[in-house]
């Protein structure tokens, strides 16, 4: 009975508009979620299709390879290996006792033949020391002609050294200001 006098809040047009906007916003969020789900599903489908086509490609390649041929190839390889192993075993075998005796006898025979050879001299052969004569050109008798520019420096020369080496003569003129002139003649 007391509830008759309870005052309810008044609903205005603004309240209704707010409610409509909020409802639309919620619906929009739901649609966005739905779109996201659709996008994800389509991506998953694309991945599935890719995997499927890849699997089909593998199957197609595998269908071209005959299992019997592969087995035969493996058997042939095994046979070849076994054959090679057999060869290796034969080659690696130890000689029989009789053959070994023959080889040793032949070896002794060769050794006895070697004993008949002349002895190797123990001392080194004596060789006369013969001086080789070097055919060198004549030493020039005339003094060297020096350029005028060098001439001035040549007056102060502290030392003039003539060197004979491998058939060439050099005149080394050492000047006071350490400049050196080489003249070949």
């Amino acid at each position: 009975m007391g509830n008759i006098f309870v005052k309810k809040p008044k609903i205005t047009e603004v309240d209704k508009a707010i409610l409509s906007l909020k409802t639309q916003r919620r619906k929009l969020a739901q649609y966005q979620q739905q779109l996201a789900n659709i996008e994800l599903t389509s991506k998953q489908k694309a991945v599935f299709e890719s995997l499927k086509s890849g699997n089909n490609a593998i199957k197609a390649i595998q269908s071209e390879i005959n299992l019997e041929d592969v087995q035969k190839l493996m058997d042939d390889t095994a046979e070849a290996k076994a054959y090679q192993d057999e060869i290796n075993a034969i080659l690696g075998e130890k000689l029989p006792a009789e053959d070994e005796e023959e080889v040793l006898a032949e070896f002794e025979n060769l050794e006895s033949q070697l004993q008949d050879l002349p002895e190797v001299p123990s001392a080194a052969p004596s060789v006369e020391n013969v001086e080789e004569e070097l055919d060198l050109p004549d030493v020039p008798t005339k003094p060297p002609v020096v350029a005028d520019a060098v001439n001035e420096d040549a007056q102060d020369t502290s030392a003039g050294i003539t060197e004979r080496k491998k058939g060439f003569s050099f005149l080394l003129l050492v000047s006071s200001n350490t400049s050196t002139v080489y003249e070949v003649y």
Binding site: N3, V6, K7, K8, P9, K10, I11, D15, K16, I18, L19, S20, K22, T23
Partner: peptide, 20 residues
Amino acid sequence: EHKGKLAIFKGTSADDEGVK
């Protein structure tokens, strides 16, 4: 609502249900 602390009302479309 019975205690007068809120009002439940409908919006423009049927699925809108709000509280003031």
